[in-house]
Write a protein that binds this DNA or RNA. Structure first.
Length: 256
DNA sequence: ACGCGTGTTACTGT
DNA sequence: GACAGTAACACGCG
């Protein structure tokens, strides 16, 4: 369930806690989508020092001293746990044991969180880094509603269902707006909101959960929040059910 | 106690 | 081919 701001905070905390440690062993418990054989993964990473941990799109990247990267995608329910000695966590996907006998385990009861060794570089910019020209061009090319575009990881990476709603409310654009009908100055607002909503969320999470490495924090959400009935400016919050839920208000302009 | 929720892929239908 | 809609993964949490 974690989204970009959560992952950003996890990555910073993991970087602080783990970088500098050397890999003693990798154990693959259940990772049918892993792109290499478990033995090859172990061979590659064993003995390498963890140089840094960072976020890339919705994945956590663990970069090692020889340049290899292990990417972890948490999907809906992936959770990270630190352990000492032996990993006792249920639903383990993969675990990394370090030379000092501490380790990191990725778990997922659904079994869909997945590791990738040396993932190919992605074309789509991260939400943090997307610029206005790019966004204008991409939106101009599609008739899909704008929320679908924000969620499309091939266009812009890192935004999930909940933050898409927060961002669109912040920009006062209806999630059902037709992408190529949104005027340029509104696209500018949208980009501003992408950056500010995500940044603000990250700050809120750090403030309330400075050491978090798993789970999610969303009680500060203004619109995508089932506990709230009204937006901060007093409009009734509406909910549209379509697989994932979309929360919005009539304050948001519909371009169509 | 039971309903809600998150991402991705794969597939059907228009 | 573009786009919409749906199911599946299967449990933790409040």
């Amino acid at each position: 369930m974690p989204e970009l701001p959560d992952l950003q905070v996890f990555s910073r905390n993991l970087n602080k806690m783990l970088s500098g440690k050397t890999v003693k062993a990798i154990t693959v418990h259940k990772a049918p989508k892993l792109n290499v054989m478990p033995a090859a993964l172990q061979d590659t990473l064993q003995g390498q020092k963890l140089s840094s941990v960072y976020r890339d799109g919705k994945e956590l990247y663990f970069k090692f001293s020889k340049g290899d990267v292990l990417a972890l995608h948490l999907m809906l329910h992936g959770k990270l746990f630190l352990f000492e000695g032996k990993n006792e966590n249920k639903y383990s996907i993969i675990e990394i044991l370090f030379n000092d006998d501490t380790g990191l385990a990725l778990t997922d009861f659904q079994g869909i969180a997945n590791p990738t060794l040396n993932p190919p570089e992605k074309d789509a910019p991260d939400a943090d880094a997307a610029d206005l020209e790019y966004l204008k061009t991409k939106l101009g090319k599609t008739k899909t509603n704008v929320k679908t575009v924000l969620l499309d990881q091939k266009i812009i990476r890192g935004i999930g269902n909940a933050y898409a709603d927060e961002i669109l409310w912040d920009a006062r654009i209806s999630p059902f707006s037709v992408s190529n009908k949104i005027p340029d100055d509104k696209v500018k607002d949208l980009l501003k909101s992408i950056h500010s909503v995500l940044k603000n969320a990250e700050e809120q999470i750090i403030k309330s959960n400075p050491d978090i490495i798993a789970g999610e924090v969303r009680d500060f959400m203004l619109i995508h929040n089932s506990k709230k009935k009204q937006s901060p400016t007093g409009a009734e919050i509406l909910v549209k059910e379509a697989g994932r839920k979309t929360y919005y208000t009539e304050e948001q302009e519909l371009y169509s």
